[in-house]
C-alpha cells in the first residue's frame, strides 16, 4: 500500500545568472513501513526533494500525495497541521527546542495536537525509554550529548504517531558509536511502530541499513533498488 505518491516533482531555482533544476520531474512511491535511504552526492537534490516531500518547500510543479491528500493544495495552516499529524522530522543538527527539557521536547508536539496531559506524559516516558534515555527526561538539550539529542529528536518525531519520518543527514554530526546506536534504534522503531523512515544521506552506515536505496543525481532518480536486510 502506497503511503506516499510523488508525481513529476520539480523544483527550479531562478537566480539572476542561472536557472537551476534542483529536482527534475521525480516520480516515485513509498510504501508503509519502508526504511529508505535517498542517496547522492552533495548538491544532487536530496534535501530539496525531502523538503518538498515533507511540506517544507513548495515545488515548482508536480504533486506530493500522502494518504490520498495532495499536500501542496492545502492552505498554509492546513499544511502545518498536516505535518504535525502525519510527518516526523529528524534534522542533521537535532534542532531540539533549547529551553525545553528532553521530555518537554517530546511532549511539545502532543501538546500542539491537543492530547490529554496524562496520555502525553505516558507516551513521552515510553518513547524516551524506548530510545534509551528515559533517565534524562528532565535534562535540557545543552546537557545531552549529540547522540542523546538525536535520540530525543527521534522520540519527538515519533511522538505524534506520524505516517512517516523524514530524516535529513541524521548521522552527520555523530560519531560511529552514536551512529550505530541511532541506526539500531531507528530500525527498531521502524519494526515496532511500522513507521516509514526516509533518510537523505551519504553516510555508508545508513545506506547499509536501508531496505531501499534511491540514488539521485542532478535532480533525477538514477537508481531505485530494494534489499533484504535483517
Amino acid at each position: 500500500m502506497n503511503v506516499i505518491e510523488i508525481k513529476g516533482l520539480t523544483k527550479i531555482y531562478n537566480t539572476s545568472e542561472v536557472i537551476v533544476k534542483a529536482v527534475n520531474g521525480i516520480d516515485i512511491n513509498f510504501e508503509k513501513g519502508e526504511f529508505t535511504a535517498i542517496v547522492g552526492p552533495s548538491g544532487s537534490g536530496k534535501t530539496t526533494f525531502l523538503n518538498m516531500l515533507g511540506g517544507l518547500d513548495k515545488p515548482t510543479s508536480g504533486k506530493v500525495i500522502i494518504g490520498g491528500v495532495d499536500v501542496w493544495k492545502l492552505s498554509s495552516r492546513q499544511l502545518i497541521d498536516f505535518r504535525m499529524n502525519n510527518i516526523g522530522f529528524v534534522f542533521q543538527s537535532y534542532n531540539l527546542i533549547p529551553v525545553l527539557t528532553a521530555g518537554e521536547n517530546v511532549e511539545f508536539i502532543m501538546h500542539l495536537q491537543g492530547k490529554p496531559k496524562k496520555e502525553r506524559k505516558q507516551r513521552t516516558k515510553d518513547l524516551l525509554e524506548a530510545v534509551g534515555i528515559g533517565n534524562r527526561i528532565n535534562a535540557r538539550p545543552s546537557k545531552l550529548s549529540g547522540g542523546q539529542q538525536q535520540r530525543v529528536a527521534v522520540a519527538r518525531a515519533l511522538a505524534s504517531k506520524p505516517e512517516f519520518i523524514l530524516a535529513d543527514e541524521p548521522t552527520a554530526n555523530l560519531d560511529s558509536t552514536a551512529t550505530n546506536s541511532l541506526l539500531e534504534l531507528m530500525s527498531k522503531m521502524n519494526k515496532k511502530y511500522n513507521t516509514t523512515f526516509i533518510f537523505a544521506t551519504h553516510d555508508q552506515r545508513v545506506i547499509d541499513k536501508a531496505h531501499r536505496i534511491v540514488t539521485i543525481e542532478d535532480g533525477k532518480i538514477l537508481s531505485d533498488e530494494c534489499f533484504e536486510r535483517d
Binding site: G54, I80, R83, S93, N95, I97, I109, L112
Partner: peptide, 16 residues
Amino acid sequence: KRELGVMIAIGMQRYL
C-alpha cells in the same frame, strides 16, 4: 531563526 523554523516545521501554527 532556525529554531523558529523548526517549531513551524514540526507543527506549531504561526499565530502561536
